[in-house]
């Protein structure tokens, strides 16, 4: 589904990603871990197509197509979803109105008309229930005055609505208390199927107790320096990142 080859990317001429190789197949869950500043969020933004990042070498193949030249919204239409670490506020635009616009824009890109209001309402109710969201929440301005947990839950709600092929969860666990974490993880697990894939970016093992990865990668200094199964996450939790840094620098 996703194949990243020798990816180099920089922002304002500062190299951040320095040769990433990663392959994600349908039905798989990958975790990307690593210390602060290792390039985890940059990788997420580059895959999603944020313009400030310049790809200087390598490529990103999604579903057999090089997506380097595609705008962020075109990548979204193809099924790439990013759950943001810091979701932005859009005052005056309700959660419902925002997701309705997103769904209808994606449909338009596929040559479909707007989703009938009745179907939209039904879908919104179903997905809101999945994430144990209060109905009142849906009429609030997007992310305005949301708690950390509400923001992340709203991200996963949008994911549930858009049904992406590839979901990248950027530190979805940060700012969540244990109950919110369980609800969010539960939502992600219910949405998982053999046809889609999830890339979880996290500092901590905690989230991976709920969303169990097939592969764990350690990102350090712009490169994936170690890959393994879920037991690697436990090892990192126990020993920290220093031993990896030593291994790399040795």
């Amino acid at each position: 589904m996703l194949k990243i080859n020798n990816l180099h990317a920089s922002v304002e001429d500062k190299g951040i990603l320095k040769g990433i190789n990663l392959e994600v197949k349908a039905g798989e869950v990958h975790a990307i871990m690593g210390p602060n500043g290792s390039g985890k969020s940059t990788l997420a933004s580059v895959i999603a197509g944020k313009e400030e990042y310049e790809v200087t070498d390598g490529n990103i193949i999604f579903e057999g197509e090089d997506i380097e030249e595609l705008a962020a919204e075109e990548r979204a239409h193809k099924g790439v979803f990013l759950s943001f670490q810091y979701p932005v506020e859009i005052p005056g635009v309700s959660v419902t109105n925002f997701i309705k616009t997103a769904i209808n824009e994606s449909r338009k890109a596929k040559g479909l008309g707007d989703m009938p209001a009745k179907d939209m309402l039904k879908l919104i109710r179903e997905k809101a229930d999945l994430l144990e969201m209060d109905r009142k929440f849906l009429s609030r301005s997007l992310n305005e005055g949301f708690s950390g947990g509400e923001k992340k839950r709203n991200e996963i709600f949008q994911m549930a609505m858009l049904e992406p092929k590839l979901a990248i969860l950027d530190e979805t666990d940060s700012g969540l208390d244990i109950d919110a974490l369980r609800i969010v993880a539960n939502g992600v697990n219910k949405l998982k199927s053999k046809d889609n894939a999830v890339v979880v970016i996290t500092h901590y093992q905690r989230l991976l107790d709920y969303i169990v990865p097939d592969f764990v990668h350690v990102l350090y200094n712009g490169k994936i320096v170690k890959s393994g199964g879920k037991e690697l996450a436990h090892e990192l939790e126990e020993k920290g990142y220093d031993w990896i840094k030593e291994e790399v620098n040795a």
Binding site: K50, E51, E73, A76, F81, I90, I99, E105, L162
Partner: peptide
């Protein structure tokens, strides 16, 4: 960018 990522140009 947030909107773009959700498929909104």
């Amino acid at each position: 960018f947030y909107c773009n990522q959700r498929g909104i140009d």
